[in-house]
């Protein structure tokens, strides 16, 4: 990407709002050491969003956008769901795929980019909810892992189809009752992180977004390993506070509680992925 598209013509700078001038002057683009600690000081790639007040998913997106090492050359592929409401507002390349097809679309994009720009690093990151990743799109998700596509898949797990009124999803824990699942879930939560490991992912992590620094570390590892080796998978717990009956200031509390049980931090790294991580660490990028 050319950075000239962010350079404001000096003659017209006086008519530009400060936030756009900040996007040029306080940008972290072209700086792979960027991270969540920069959040208070620079113009973010996502600022205003149309999610509910206090939605943990908005925080997750904010941390991810701040952590991507190469945002100017990163393509995000997303799918239908709450997350897709945010993508029109972020200052990055995004592709909205058909529901569930995100990993297939991302595979194609990655291959074309490798062909079209052989001498440039282009990262492809899939961001989708649990419905798109695990239920409706499980086929495309797993097939991309089997094919060893060099893409990062991030699943925002809110354990329910929140956007459509609270139907149970494959990720809903057994026994949970939602508005459209009054009898309670009859079977266990799908262990997607385990499926990812068994399907050949080089790096897999499961966590909540209660700790921004941890999210940053995981996202960077996942992107670098995907760039050099093969598929990576990150499973994030981003509870839907409305569907589980919490107030807008209780999302963090909920995630911290789940940190100690079914979303306890878990990381799987293959030996070759560890080599990549060590190399990137030695370069000071992690």
């Amino acid at each position: 990407m050319s950075f000239k598209v962010y350079q404001i013509n000096p003659e017209l700078k006086d008519v530009m709002p400060q936030e756009i001038i900040d996007l040029e002057e306080k940008s972290t683009l072209n700086n792979p050491k960027r991270g969540v600690m920069d959040l208070p000081f620079y113009k973010e790639l996502i600022e205003e969003h149309s999610l509910c007040a206090g939605c943990p998913e908005a925080a997750a997106l904010r941390y991810i956008m701040a952590s991507l090492p190469n945002p100017e050359d990163t393509i995000i592929v997303n799918s239908t769901g709450c997350t897709s409401l945010v993508f029109p507002h972020i200052a990055m390349h995004t592709v909205h795929s058909l529901f569930g097809n995100q990993n297939a679309v991302a595979s194609g994009i990655k291959r074309v980019l490798e062909y079209r720009y052989p001498d440039r690093v282009k990262d492809v990151v899939v961001l989708a909810g649990d419905g798109a990743t695990v239920d409706i799109g499980l086929d495309c998700t797993l097939q991309s892992f089997f094919r060893q596509e060099k893409i990062t898949t991030i699943c925002f797990d809110n354990e329910v189809y929140a956007n459509t009124g609270g139907q149970e999803s494959g990720m809903t824990p057994k026994g949970h009752v939602f508005k459209m699942a009054p009898k309670g879930k009859q079977f266990e939560k799908v262990p997607m992180w385990q499926l990812a490991i068994d399907s050949g992912c080089k790096y897999v992590a499961r966590l909540t977004v209660s700790s921004p620094k941890r999210v940053e570390s995981v996202i960077k590892k996942a992107v670098y390993v995907a760039r050099y080796l093969g598929p990576t998978y990150v499973h994030l717990y981003t509870p839907c506070i409305l569907e589980i009956g919490l107030n807008s200031d209780q999302g963090l509390e909920e995630m911290r509680a789940r940190d100690k049980e079914r979303f306890e931090f878990f990381e799987y790294i293959t030996p070759e992925a560890q080599e990549v991580i060590d190399r990137v660490k030695a370069e000071g990028l992690l």
Binding site: S2, K4, I8, E11
Partner: peptide, 15 residues
């Protein structure tokens, strides 16, 4: 944007 940003020589002149 084609005039506001300095992405080529024409854009600079047009600004």
């Amino acid at each position: 944007p084609q005039v506001l940003y300095a992405w080529n020589e024409d854009a600079k002149k047009k600004a």
